[in-house]
Design a protein around this nucleic acid. Structure first.
Length: 533
DNA sequence: AGCGGAACCC
DNA sequence: GGGTTCCGCT
């Protein structure tokens, strides 16, 4: 029994705060209502009382610093009824988000992580900019018309580059008077309980679920994606107790300033941000009742979404990044297929590491030994023969060791968006042969960075729809889910690369592509130019 | 500090 | 599925 853990029933009646339904697992474990770590992190981040424990990082959107790891862990442990929780464990959980692309680590900065707003937001809402100035991206989203239609007015006329102060918008006004008084002072004292974040959370659900059909299942899109997360109603963090932080990505959206709630159905796994910058597909439910800054017609939206679907299809965006729209058909594949064969793939064999089960575990005693296979199965792990040092390799301009965002270069980092180094770094060249018009010559040795997970996954990211795709499916099927995930993740990066190189689809996260010239750090430009050279 | 594999749990 | 726990490694 979880006695002593005074938590987590989602309070039905007012008073406490609770998460919206989407914040709880409803699929895998119905009624489990388990809060997820990233929810929790966000929750902490929104709470003024925890600023001293965890806070948004200046200068980087979505980046946050865990100022007091132990305390955060303690809070998390409390929430989860895991008194033994510590930062080590918590950080392990955070690290699992890397592959899910919810988070990534900011290299060189202790306890600093960053929510993955690029991949999260931009694929879904390319027309929305999450950069500090909060203006519309300059470059065009996949659907040209969209960019001209979806327009956010500038928040204010301040200098877009440096205005970290809460003056960005009248943030305070978002917080009802008297709200901030809640637990003003002491935070994170190990002895005294923190403002109970534990049991309750503010009711985020202000919005209307715009989804016409919920689990009616048989939408056309449902056919292609049988496995779906529940629909979402996404929160806007302009709630009591939540502090409008100028560095919070949630605060930068003009939408936020307006204090409205927009909803869009998205996979909860990836969606935290998009939700915040989402739009209302229904004019009637437009969050901008009178204001004209955000209006469009459904057809336009449909068009956009369709193109979005094409993007997903053509660029292998994770379907999870694609908002669910019933009735939206995925387009047939119509991509030029590189008829290349799989390149030879040097491998080396490596004995499997001794798993925990195979390790000597003193406490397990003799009994456990019986259950496990007496002899470790002679499996071998297939690994590419090359080492994977390329992981963090970057464009030359940025390769300055771990500390990439310091001083003046922080702007560069922020603008080039490739925070966390490897994650969104502009790749220099494809790591495996791809059918490209003009592959970068010898920027890296051939076959440099095939990860072990790609074993057999050497297919180009431009996976053809034909036999190769079938083959890919077979590979996928034969591949452990974990690796599949990883490969997809890797594929996505390759995609970015392709898109960059081909200039077919701007990477919306590539702020330096979108940013006004004044915001583009020379370095980034140089690096880009160099990479393109 | 940070990473990621592995086993396990719920 | 989403952690939690443990651990070896860098």
């Amino acid at each position: 029994m979880k006695a002593g853990c005074s938590i987590v029933e989602k309070p039905e009646g007012g008073g406490g705060y609770h998460f919206p339904d989407w914040a709880y697992k409803t699929e895998s474990s119905p009624g489990s209502r388990q809060i997820q770590l990233w929810h929790f992190i966000l929750e902490l981040l929104q709470k003024e009382e925890f600023r001293h424990v965890i806070a948004w990082q200046q200068g980087e959107y979505g980046e946050f610093v865990i100022k007091d790891p132990d305390e955060v862990a303690r809070l998390w442990g409390r929430r989860k009824c895991k008194p033994q929780m510590n930062y080590d464990k918590l950080s392990r959980a955070l690290r699992y988000y890397y592959n899910k692309r919810i988070l990534h680590k900011t290299k060189g900065k202790r306890f600093t992580y960053k929510f993955n707003f690029n991949k999260l937001v931009m694929p879904n809402y390319p027309f929305i900019n999450i950069r500090p100035n909060g203006v519309v991206p300059q470059s065009a989203p996949p659907v040209p018309t969209a960019s001209s239609r979806f327009h956010f007015p500038p928040l204010d006329s301040h200098s877009p580059t440096e205005d970290p102060q809460p003056s960005r918008f009248s943030a305070r006004s978002l917080v009802p008077p008297g709200q901030e008084s809640m637990n003003n002072g002491s935070i994170g004292e190990k002895s005294s309980p923190v403002p109970e974040l534990d049991g309750s959370s503010p009711d985020w659900r202000h919005g209307v679920d715009l989804l016409p059909s919920r689990n009616s299942a048989s939408g056309a899109a449902g056919a292609s994606h049988p496995k779906r997360k529940p629909d979402l109603v996404l929160p806007l963090f302009s709630r009591p107790g939540m502090y409008p932080d100028p560095h919070s990505p949630f605060a930068v959206s003009p939408l936020t300033a307006r204090g409205g709630v927009l909803n869009v159905p998205i996979s909860p796994a990836l969606s935290l941000t998009p939700t915040l910058f989402s739009y209302s597909p229904s004019p009637g439910m437009s969050p901008f009742p009178g204001s004209s800054c955000f209006s469009f017609n459904p057809d336009e939206m449909k068009h956009y979404l369709h193109s979005q679907a094409c993007s997903v299809f053509n660029y292998h965006l994770s379907p999870r990044t694609f908002p669910r729209y019933p009735g939206l058909l995925f387009p047939p594949t119509q991509r030029q297929v590189p008829p290349e064969d799989q390149p030879p793939f040097p491998i080396k064999l490596q004995p499997p590491p001794v798993g925990r089960k195979n390790r000597e575990r003193p406490e397990s005693g003799g009994g456990a030994g019986a259950s496990q296979a007496p002899a470790v199965s002679p499996q071998v792990k297939i690994e590419p023969a090359v080492d994977k040092e390329a992981e963090s390799r970057d464009s030359p301009g940025k390769d300055q060791g771990g500390k990439e965002e310091e001083g003046a270069s922080s702007v560069a980092a922020s603008q080039s968006q490739e925070v966390g180094g490897a994650l969104f770094a502009r790749p220099v060249a494809p790591s495996w042969p791809v059918a490209l018009p003009a592959p970068a010559p010898a920027n890296r040795p051939a076959g440099e960075k095939p990860k072990p997970e790609e074993g057999g996954g050497t297919r180009s990211p431009q996976e053809p729809a034909g036999d190769l795709s079938a083959q890919g499916k077979r590979e996928d099927a034969a591949m452990p889910p974990k690796l599949r995930l990883k490969r997809r993740w890797h594929d996505d990066q390759q995609l970015d690369l392709l898109e960059d190189r081909q200039g077919r689809k701007p990477h919306w996260g590539d702020s330096h592509l979108n940013a006004p010239p004044s915001l583009v750090p020379p370095k980034a430009v140089a690096a880009t130019a160099a990479a393109d050279a």
